[in-house]
Structure formats: C-alpha cells, structure tokens
Amino acid sequence: MPAPERIPPRSLTALDLLTKGELKVRGQVREASNAVLYCSVSYEGEEAHCVYKPVAGERPLWDFPDGTLAQREVAAYEVSEATGWGLVPPTVLRDGPYGQGMVQLWIEADPEQSLLALVEDEEPGEGWKAVGFAEVGEGRTALLVHADDVRLRRLAVLDAVINNGDRKGGHLLPTADGHLYAIDHGVTFNVDDKLRTLLWGWAGDPLPADALSGLASLSDSLSADGPLATRLAQLLTAAEVEALRGRVEALRGAGRHPVPSGEWPAIPWPPV
C-alpha cells in the first residue's frame, strides 16, 4: 500500500477531513478478522489515507452487543485524547460506501523501531520488560519481552482504563517522528473485566506521575456534565460509562499498574 499523505493539512484538522471528506475504497486488509478497508479521503483539496471499518462487516461476538465495535473504536480515541497522550489515531464515526462505520487516519509504522522481542535468556535484559514465555517450535520456548518505554507504559494505563481485551503486538505503530499510535480497539469498554495484553511488564509497579496526571484529567472529563461523559453517552451504554469511571477511580486509588486476574489467559493469542 502507498504511504499516506501527512496530516495536519493546511486548513483542516484530521477530524474535519475524516468526517467531511469523500471516501474511496482502495483495498482491503485481508488478515483482519472483521472487514477493514483501506481508503483515501479527500475534502477541499486535502487528501489522506485512512481505514474504514463498516459496522456491516463486524463479526458477532458472544460477549459484546452486535454492531457496536465501531463505536468502541471511536470511544477509545476520545478517552485517549482526554488523557492528553494522543495514543490513538484520529477516529470518527460516519457513513461510508458500505454504511456507517469507523474511519481512522492511516498511520505508517517505522519498521526500524522494535518494541517487542523473543529472547533465549531467562532475564529480559536492560531496557526490556518480561511478559512471559512463549513456544517457538520444536519444544523450545523463549521469553517474550517489550520495551521499557514511556509510550508503552502510558498505553498500558490506557488499556487498563478502556478494558482492552485484545492488545497485540501488531496493534503498536511507532512512527519515524518518535510517536507511538495504537489501533484496533473494538473489544473494549466491557462492564466485565476483559483486560488481555502484552504490556504486563509493569504489573504491580507504582504508577508514574504522568499516568496519575492523565487519570486525574480523565476523572474530571468523566464527571456527569463533563465533555467526555457527554460524548461517550453517544457511543456506549450508561453501564459501560459508569464502569469506565470505576476503573479510572480504582487505578487512582491503588496508584499501581493492574496485575493479571488469574481467571483467564492474560496474554492474547496469537500475541502479535
């Protein structure tokens, strides 16, 4: 696929372009479990590439209401923005060639940046955090590790907040300019604990100051008349918004990264 045009354009925000622009389907991401279409979007002389996930292409899940994954993707973007971390690419809910769906700015990852690794040693090594052991074939196992990176640490907090049930390595998009984006947030915001992630390297550790600050901003925005609460009421159920508030306050009260519950596999499969 060709590299996308860079955003922001001269006179439009990325959200304006994604919301108002004309969508043209250019291809399909075939390895995805749901329909994911690669598109161009153009408006008033500006153009970018984006991902369009129509609700009609969502596969039913036993533990999420049908036809709600696109709204959850948008809600994850809204929560990310409220923290001030900008971890989720600009994302909107709109009509497209195949009906309503999620439209998200395409992010080109830098292939030179490695955030995950498999190592033969029993210790992760300097600059890495251990996740757990994984089978690598012929009866051999290796230690799965992720980078000890402030960007990933913020993402680990965001995932705990939105109750991400599927944080895999392929969802991490580091860019050449040093930013980290995360994608694929359809299985989030469940009222039941669903957290499954590769980012357990800080489990039980005290939350850093920037995480506590981001959580405080979230708490303010989620007050009954706060801007985030108003927006999320259009995307999630009242019970899901209330559960979100509960997770934010629980993290603030504990002051530590969560640990696996032990009630189900904590790492998604396949991990990448």
Rank of each mutant, 00 (worst) to 15 (best):
R94E: 10
E81G: 00
G84K: 14
Y77C: 09
L69R: 04
T83Q: 13
S80V: 10
A82I: 15
A70S: 10
G101K: 00
P89Y: 10
V79G: 14
G96W: 07
D95S: 15
T83P: 12
V74C: 00
E108A: 13
G101M: 05
P90V: 13
E78T: 09
M102N: 08
W62Y: 05
V92G: 02
L87I: 06
D66Q: 11
R72W: 00
S80M: 13
E108Q: 12
Q113H: 08
Q71M: 03
G86T: 06
P89K: 05
A76D: 04
G99N: 01
A70P: 07
L87A: 01
V74S: 00
A109P: 15
W62S: 10
L105S: 05
W62T: 04
A70H: 02
T68K: 00
I107K: 02
Q100K: 10
T68S: 09
D66V: 07
G84L: 14
T83S: 13
P111V: 11
P65D: 04
A70Y: 06
Y77T: 05
P97C: 13
T83W: 14
V74T: 04
L69T: 05
Q104L: 08
P89D: 09
G84I: 15
G99R: 01
E112Q: 14
A75D: 04
P65H: 05
V92F: 02
G67V: 01
D110Y: 04
A75Y: 07
L87S: 01
P90Y: 13
T83E: 13
R72K: 00
L115V: 11
S114Q: 09
E78Y: 13
D66H: 03
V79T: 15
A109Q: 13
A109M: 11
A82Q: 15
W106Y: 11
L93M: 01
S114R: 06
S114D: 06
D63P: 09
V74W: 03
P111L: 12
G101E: 09
I107L: 02
A82V: 15
T83L: 15
Y77M: 08
L69G: 10
D66K: 04
V88H: 03
A76K: 03
I107E: 06
P89V: 10
Q113D: 09
L69Y: 03
D95H: 12
E108W: 12
G96K: 08
M102F: 03
D95T: 12
Y98N: 10
W106K: 08
M102Y: 02
G67A: 09
G67N: 07
W62M: 04
L69C: 03
M102R: 03
F64W: 08
L61A: 07
F64N: 03
M102A: 10
P90I: 14
D63S: 09
P89L: 11
V79H: 14
E81Q: 07
V79I: 15
A75R: 02
Q71F: 04
G99H: 04
M102H: 04
Q71A: 09
M102G: 06
G86Y: 15
Q104H: 06
L105F: 07
L69P: 05
F64G: 03
S114V: 13
Q71C: 04
G101W: 05
V74D: 01
E108R: 12
P90A: 14
Q71S: 05
I107N: 00
L87M: 11
V103Q: 04
Q113K: 11
R94L: 08
D95C: 11
V103S: 02
T68E: 06
V92H: 03
E108H: 10
E108C: 12
L87G: 00
